[in-house]
Amino acid sequence: MEVRTIKVFTTVDNINLHTQVVDMSMTYGQQFGPTYLDGADVTKIKPHNSHEGKTFYVLPNDDTLRVEAFEYYHTTDPSFLGRYMSALNHTKKWKYPQVNGLTSIKWADNNCYLATALLTLQQIELKFNPPALQDAYYRARAGEAANFCALILAYCNKTVGELGDVRETMSYLFQHANLDSCKRVLNVVCKTCGQQQTTLKGVEAVMYMGTLSYEQFKKGVQIPCTCGKQATKYLVQQESPFVMMSAPPAQYELKHGTFTCASEYTGNYQCGHYKHITSKETLYCIDGALLTKSSEYKGPITDVFYKENSYTTTIK
């Protein structure tokens, strides 16, 4: 009895394709271990004539594949690729409408935090270190965002349907971005203890939790000093293409032309909904596939993004 075979390709990165001759009487799992086709788990399936010449994702289970996976995804987590594939199996079914010149995501599976993050990423200057993220990001900007969303979920250790947080998501993504040249110098002034300067680099240099107003941050924000008295913390120097200011959701007025974009969060910790506000020729609110415009805006804002380049204080 002759062994019926077909020729397929296996890959971990969709760049390096490895030619395989597979036995049609055995499952993919018996031949390769966990195997995925377009995100779908085909591990328990036997090869079919229609699979001839198709590319299958496999887990990096030998040295060659491990090197290829690390170079593309910059992670050695053995569960990463499987999590990416199972997320992709959902995100490829989502709709990605162009809204006001940006790629958004039609609401499904509690994905409003991903839509808000995706919209924000198209408006701030950011370059990702893992080629996987950078490639998928370019495709997302062009309207094909399924891979990018699935990668975000995998890097953030999230599953489809789980509630997510924009600030946490951005923080994970910033860790995989090139923020080497970003720098922030802060000064804390206390009447009792004097003053202390701190220099922050990388992710810490672009994120701040405690106030939404970048102007206020430049002037000074009140913080408790270690001595128990009130101290003032203010920005001395900022070198970065953008800054992200966050605070627990509270009524906040966004003035046209003073910011790049913002995240609105309605609801409580267990259950809520994100919308995205962007400042173009007027203010726009993007909620999944829905767009509304207004000249002014007041609502429960939790993150505001500002364009920056270089700032030095005039406070002496």
Score class of each variant (00 low, 15 high):
residue 278 T to S: 12
residue 79 S to R: 12
residue 21 V to R: 12
residue 7 K to G: 10
residue 116 T to A: 07
residue 92 K to H: 03
residue 47 P to K: 03
residue 231 A to H: 05
residue 287 D to E: 05
residue 243 V to S: 01
residue 255 K to T: 10
residue 99 V to L: 12
residue 202 G to E: 08
residue 272 G to D: 04
residue 55 T to H: 08
residue 245 M to E: 00
residue 31 Q to I: 12
residue 194 G to E: 00
residue 89 N to S: 10
residue 269 Y to S: 15
residue 223 I to F: 11
residue 115 A to S: 08
residue 142 A to V: 11
residue 191 K to A: 12
residue 123 Q to N: 10
residue 7 K to C: 12
residue 245 M to N: 07
residue 16 N to V: 14
residue 154 A to E: 04
residue 276 H to L: 09
residue 292 T to R: 11
residue 304 V to N: 00
residue 85 M to C: 04
residue 239 E to I: 11
residue 300 P to S: 10
residue 166 V to G: 02
residue 250 A to E: 13
residue 306 Y to F: 09
residue 240 S to H: 07
residue 265 Y to G: 04
residue 96 Y to I: 06
residue 282 T to E: 14
residue 254 L to A: 00
residue 292 T to A: 08
residue 137 Y to V: 05
residue 58 V to S: 06
residue 236 V to Q: 03
residue 181 S to D: 14
residue 273 H to Q: 00
residue 34 P to N: 13
residue 22 V to H: 06
residue 21 V to W: 11
residue 68 E to T: 06
residue 125 E to L: 03
residue 311 Y to L: 13
residue 60 P to F: 06
residue 249 P to C: 06
residue 86 S to H: 09
residue 315 I to W: 15
residue 49 N to T: 11
residue 187 N to L: 12
residue 83 R to H: 01
residue 37 L to V: 09
residue 220 G to Y: 04
residue 250 A to M: 12
residue 12 V to A: 09
residue 106 K to L: 09
residue 126 L to H: 03
residue 285 C to T: 11
residue 312 T to F: 11
residue 14 N to I: 10
residue 137 Y to E: 07
residue 167 R to S: 05
residue 282 T to R: 09
residue 15 I to G: 07
residue 190 C to Q: 08
residue 262 A to H: 00
residue 269 Y to P: 15
residue 86 S to G: 10
residue 208 Y to G: 09
residue 188 V to L: 08
residue 84 Y to R: 09
residue 149 C to D: 00
residue 271 C to L: 15
residue 218 K to Y: 03
residue 283 L to Q: 00
residue 116 T to Y: 06
residue 218 K to E: 02
residue 121 L to W: 07
residue 69 A to M: 15
residue 79 S to D: 15
residue 142 A to K: 14
residue 314 T to R: 15
residue 221 V to H: 06
residue 260 T to I: 15
residue 202 G to R: 03
residue 260 T to F: 07
residue 184 R to E: 00
residue 307 K to L: 10
residue 268 N to K: 04
residue 160 V to D: 03
residue 247 A to Y: 09
residue 301 I to Q: 01
residue 306 Y to Q: 10
residue 107 W to F: 01
residue 119 L to R: 03
residue 266 T to R: 06
residue 249 P to I: 04
residue 179 L to P: 00
residue 274 Y to E: 01
residue 79 S to E: 00
residue 67 V to C: 15
residue 142 A to Q: 14
residue 72 Y to P: 04
residue 31 Q to V: 10
residue 121 L to H: 02
residue 172 Y to E: 06
residue 25 S to Y: 10
residue 296 E to S: 13
residue 247 A to F: 04
residue 298 K to M: 13
residue 176 H to I: 06
residue 89 N to R: 11
residue 270 Q to L: 14
residue 152 I to L: 10
residue 167 R to L: 01
residue 6 I to A: 12
residue 133 L to R: 04
residue 141 R to M: 08
residue 52 E to P: 08
residue 105 I to R: 04
residue 24 M to G: 13
residue 182 C to V: 02
residue 47 P to M: 03
residue 257 G to C: 03
residue 178 N to C: 09
residue 280 K to T: 12
residue 175 Q to T: 07
residue 217 F to A: 15
residue 56 F to G: 05
residue 168 E to T: 15
residue 262 A to F: 00
residue 53 G to R: 12
residue 272 G to M: 00
residue 295 S to G: 10
residue 2 E to T: 11
residue 59 L to I: 14
residue 209 M to G: 11
residue 151 L to M: 05
residue 34 P to H: 13
residue 38 D to W: 09
residue 265 Y to T: 03
residue 21 V to M: 13
residue 308 E to M: 10
residue 56 F to D: 05
residue 98 Q to D: 06
residue 217 F to Y: 05
residue 193 C to G: 05
residue 314 T to V: 12
residue 281 E to Y: 04
residue 233 K to S: 11
residue 175 Q to M: 07
residue 122 Q to W: 01
residue 4 R to T: 13
residue 299 G to A: 10
residue 57 Y to H: 11
residue 99 V to I: 14
residue 301 I to Y: 01
residue 280 K to N: 12
residue 209 M to I: 15
residue 114 L to P: 04
residue 191 K to P: 15
residue 129 N to M: 06
residue 17 L to N: 08
residue 237 Q to V: 11
residue 170 M to S: 00
residue 119 L to E: 03
residue 174 F to D: 09
residue 24 M to K: 08
